[in-house]
Design a protein around this nucleic acid. Sequence first.
RNA 1: GCACCCAUCGUCUAGUUAGGCCUAGGACACCAGGUUUUCAUCCUGGUAACAGGGGUUCAAAUCCCCUUGGGUGUACCA
Length: 480
Amino acid sequence: MSVRVRIAPSPTGDPHVGTAYIALLNYCFAKSQGGSFILRVEDTDQGRCTPESKQAIMDCMRWLGLEYDEGPDIGGEHGPYEQSQRVEAGIYKKYSDQLVEQGDAYPCFCSSEDLTTMREAQRAAGEPIMYDRRCRDLSKEEAQARIDAGDSHVIRMKTPLEGEHSYPDRLRKNPVVKQWVDVDDQVLLKADGWPTYHLAAVVDDHLMGITHVIRAEEWLNSLPKHTWLNKQLGFEVPEYIHVGLLRNADKSKISKRKNPTNVLWYRDQGYLPGALLNFLCLLGHSHPEERDQFDLEEMVRIFDLSRLSVAGPVFDMDKLKFLQGLWFRDLSPEQMCAVIHQSLDYRMDELLPLVAERMITGGDFCNQADIFYADDVRWQMQDVIPKGWDANQTRKALDTTVKSLRKLIKKGKLEWTAADIEKGIKDIAEKNDWKPKQYYMTLRVAATGRKDSPPLFESLEAIGQLKVFKRIEALLPKIR
RNA sequence: GCACCCAUCGUCUAGUUAGGCCUAGGACACCAGGUUUUCAUCCUGGUAACAGGGGUUCAAAUCCCCUUGGGUGUACCA
């Protein structure tokens, strides 16, 4: 039987670098086995999924060169490849009904308030937090009566109450063992009639003939639910393989607060897809001859699941930059030229309005726009410390700014847009009684390295939250 | 809280599946030197790790146990 794998992202927000990572591993595995790589969009969360995000995921895959053999926009024998369309076809409902009929699932009428109360009580009592199964043993008649009466309900899986689930994940030394008592009666069908991930993924993997599921470690805990669902539905269980999560430098799960996680950011910033892929491949995997630089074709050639490590690797931008440098300098002048044009194009609509009035010739764009691309900023200390302020005052102002803005972002009170940034910074200025003349100048110089730059708040937005903070924090210890 | 996963230089890793070839190799970063009008590239060299404790064994980074540390999950999100 030929290998079939899939990448199943949820189109909420920007295409994530973690998705690209898992996609790469699946792609390499499939291609190294002569198999197929499939894109399936899991848009069953009606509140959060957007068509723009779906499009961005497909653009992102194409940009990376991870061409899928079947997917939403190219079709295939097992379509549709968007779960929203499959919901309409009644696919999930059918299997949910089957489980209920078999006695492997049941309707649950608990409201979200009921559940919150229940969880709070469990937390207070120091008990495990999971559904207490109060609807599990409702009689068929009673349940049917409530459904007929139009009571809002979900369908939950009726997990085994005893025994253990053991699974030999091939990346791990020992089988992964979990007691059934620790497994929750997971919701399969929501009150709106749409499936949750668990049902949808298992059903679609089966229907699409998926043989191997290479996914992130965050799914490991729900593995018993998935193997169980497969079995109760009479499906052949695909092989599940769980790989380590990408991490921030502090080892927490990678997040956009601490790393650029939007793949399109790398594209717009002028990174080469090959370099990004090369870097991603080196996380968790290694070349048998310990080589560092190699392309997708080579990755497919050397890819070997037994060479995949399980520990979650730290996403190290320094290494990415090193590889990107190697890749870029390998380009012919013609290729470089094309890449430069393209990366300029990606951001031209955004950046040109900012710098246009300061330009005299076309070439001036480079002089003005460097602040948006640079990784390292060099400051003249006499520019950093404005007239009327001393080193301490300057340091304090910059430090306070970063801390305050970070706090606002964390609380969800600040989106990284010019308007929000302006509001945040004006508040800080007022609170501390700092005059814009000095305060804005020191911010401008700290963030851009220059006294002459486009409007402050728009510039900060365009430079990006991560770079702004990074630059200021790099500057702080140098102020004296 | 409860459950599960993981553990070699600061980081990515080789070595672990088949214990000896490991006085633990490579790469990034960092430091020093060389090339370069400068910077970068490039070249040379250096600092730096088997988390701790018990076993098993003639022999353990490699196998087992405990501790510690880190991570994830615990949603009508995926």
